[in-house]
Simulated scan of single mutants.
Amino acid sequence: MTTPPQPPLAPDELVSAAGEREVLETFLDLYRAIVTRKVSGLSTSDATRRLVPSRTTLAGLVKHLTAVEREWFHGMLGGARPTPDDDWGVRDDDTVESLVADYLTACATSREICRGFTLDDTVPSPRLGRVSLRWIYVHLIEETARHAGHADILREQTDGATGFDA
C-alpha cells in the first residue's frame, strides 16, 4: 500500500524544532500573510462593506493591524511617537492596495526594529510597567491571529472564499 503524497510543509510546520525567536517570528509572519491574503483580489468597495453591526470591515482590520504594529513595535520598542488616528476608520482615499502596502511597510519596519532587541529585553509600558519583546511577540500573534479569523469570516460573507489561503 502506498502512502499518498503529503502537501509541502507550511511555514509554521517548518519551525517545529526551531528556537523560540524563530518560532515566534514565523507565526507572526504567517498570520500577517493570512490577513493580506484575505483582502487580496477584493475591490475597495467590497473590503469596506460593513457586514456585521460593529465598524469591523476587511479594510478596517488591515488598518487596525497596521496601527497595532506601530503601537507595539514602532512606539514601545522603537520610541516613535504614535500619531492619533481612528485605526478602524477607512478614509475615502484609502484603497485595498494602499492599506496593504502601508501594513506591509509597517511589518517590515517592525522586523527591523526587533532585530535590535533580545526576547528578554524589556521596555516601559504605560499600563503594564514593563514588557519584554517576547511578550510583545505573543501579544501580536494573538491580536493578528484573532483578526485573521475575523477576516476569514468577513471574506466568506463577501464572496464565499474560504480557507487558509483565500
Rank of each mutant, 00 (worst) to 15 (best):
W135A: 08
E69S: 07
P53Y: 14
P126D: 15
R81C: 01
S54R: 09
A67T: 04
S43K: 08
T57M: 08
T57E: 11
S98M: 05
T122C: 09
T118Q: 12
L128A: 12
R146L: 03
E143S: 06
T109C: 11
A80N: 10
L133P: 02
L58A: 07
R134E: 07
P124D: 15
T144Q: 13
D93L: 10
A80T: 08
G78D: 10
H139T: 02
D120G: 14
P82M: 12
I141L: 08
G60K: 03
T44M: 11
R127E: 15
S125N: 13
P53A: 15
R81F: 00
S98L: 08
V39P: 00
R111Q: 14
D87P: 00
I113Y: 09
G41P: 00
T95G: 11
A101K: 10
V68R: 07
W135S: 06
D94S: 07
D92V: 07
W88P: 00
T109R: 15
D94G: 05
G149S: 10
R70Y: 09
L133Y: 11
A80L: 09
H139C: 01
V62R: 02
L58E: 11
A47V: 06
S125I: 01
S43M: 07
L61D: 01
W88G: 02
T144C: 09
L140S: 02
F73K: 03
G116L: 05
P82F: 08
G89D: 11
E97S: 13
V138G: 11
L104T: 05
G149L: 10
H147Y: 04
H74R: 12
T144I: 11
A108H: 12
W88Y: 14
S54N: 11
A148N: 11
S43H: 04
T56G: 06
Y137D: 02
W135C: 02
V68Q: 11
L128S: 10
L104S: 03
L140R: 10
A101E: 14
R70N: 13
R130N: 11
T122H: 08
A59L: 06
P82G: 12
G60C: 05
V39N: 00
R55H: 14
R130V: 13
T144K: 05
E143A: 12
T44P: 01
C107S: 13
D93W: 12
C107T: 11
G89Q: 13
L140F: 09
T44S: 15
H150P: 00
P53Q: 15
D85V: 09
H150I: 02
G116Q: 14
P53V: 15
V39L: 01
P84L: 04
A67S: 14
V39C: 00
D86G: 10
T118I: 04
P53W: 13
D102Y: 04
S40T: 08
V68E: 11
T83P: 00
D92K: 09
M76Y: 13
A108F: 10
R111D: 14
T105Y: 06
D46T: 04
E142D: 13
R91V: 00
R115G: 14
C107R: 07
Y103I: 05
A59R: 06
R50P: 01
W72R: 07
S98C: 05
L65K: 01
A59Y: 07
